[in-house]
């Protein structure tokens, strides 16, 4: 690990506008610092500035940026109103990591791949302009949607996929005041600058994430991975589906493991609205979602896998019992 100075923030104002790298749980940052992928010169520890409560916010909830993943997933208000979020968090990492990882830190975990963490490889995310050794390399975990010629890494988190489906909003404090960014717009696609994973500007700090009123509908998080536990998603589907009189009245969907960010395509939900569930309808939605999807060899399987996983989730969410046919 490269050397660094360390300081403790005593309140939020210490962190706003700071040029130091903020550390909360540190589970991703310290891991990457050990690999010398991340080499901050100054760490500012923000674990003692509050922001660690979940509170009512209108008809929804406000989750403080420093609420741990474990506390968030165990919170009764979350489990009752937003079981999707609780289950997505519990589908990620390990109990030890969830006890440290925080709401804000989890959002800021790096979009990454094995070439990003291997200093011997070229990586535009780690070293802009150096190239991408993932393209043409081992691509089992890589993106099928929204990638660019510069980067095909995937955002590995589960929590943010659920927050995208739930249409959460990130509160950000900066030197010029507060701003709100929907979770769906918080993370970036790689385009020509893969070094930036999200829209946070220098000196800005996430203070909380708000959730709208839970609303009606069945909430499902389905994660497909290589191991039964403690592995990143190959693909995941977060869904909130409500049925009224046999027709789909709500369809909020987000997808993990397939892009540089939690993937949300409003057209996929829209095509389901007002319709009666059927294999043909689900197939149509999946085809719309995967229009333009591109594999890179080792991850070609993700295209049919996401198609089938979406179909299975929609079948389950709409009360169907038939096995979904591709």
């Amino acid at each position: 690990m490269k050397g660094f100075d360390y300081a403790r923030a005593s309140d939020l104002s210490d962190a706003i506008g700071s040029t130091a790298r903020l550390i909360a749980g540190g589970t991703n940052l310290l891991d990457l610092m050990k690999l010398e992928v991340e080499t901050p010169e100054v760490l500012l520890d923000i674990n003692r500035i509050g922001l660690d409560q979940i509170a009512t916010h209108g008809e929804g909830l406000r989750i403080g940026a420093l609420v741990t993943n474990a506390d968030c997933a165990a919170d009764l208000r979350i489990r009752q109103g937003y079981p999707l979020l609780s289950r997505a968090i519990l589908a990620g990492a390990s109990p030890q990591l969830r006890n440290r990882a925080t709401t804000g830190g989890n959002l800021c975990q790096r979009t990454r791949c094995g070439y990003f963490t291997d200093l011997a490889s070229r990586c535009n995310k780690r070293q802009p302009g150096s190239g991408c050794d993932a393209i043409g390399g081992v691509t089992r975990n890589h993106a099928i949607l929204g990638a660019s010629v510069n980067c095909i890494a995937t955002y590995p988190g589960d929590m943010a996929v659920a927050l995208a489906a739930l249409d959460g909003v990130v509160q950000i404090a900066g030197p010029d005041g507060m701003r709100n960014v929907p979770v769906r717009q918080f993370h970036r696609l790689p385009e020509d600058d893969p070094s930036r994973d999200n829209v946070l500007a220098a000196g800005e700090v996430i203070t909380s994430v708000t959730l709208p009123a839970p609303g009606r509908g069945r909430q499902i998080y389905r994660k497909v991975r290589d191991r039964a536990s403690y592995a990143f998603a190959l693909v995941s589907v977060a869904a909130i589906i409500d049925m009224v009189d046999g027709r789909i009245a709500r369809a909020d969907l987000a997808f993990g493991g397939v892009a540089h960010k939690p993937w949300h395509d409003p057209l996929v939900g829209q095509v389901l609205l007002g319709e009666r569930p059927s294999p043909a309808l689900f197939r149509h939605a999946a085809e719309l979602l995967l229009e333009g999807a591109q594999g890179h060899g080792g991850n070609d399987f993700k295209i049919p896998l996401l198609h089938r996983t979406l179909g299975a989730v929609l079948t389950e969410a709409t009360g169907g019992s038939d096995v979904f046919q591709l």
């Binding site: 360390y6 540190g26 589970t27 474990a70 030890q96 006890n99 440290r100």
Partner: peptide, 19 residues
């Protein structure tokens, strides 16, 4: 490396002594 910090199990390899 699991230890218990303030009642919670954590990976002691992924947190700093100064923290």
């Amino acid at each position: 490396c699991t230890v218990i910090v303030d009642g919670k199990r954590v990976n002691s390899c992924l947190t700093l002594a100064v923290m």
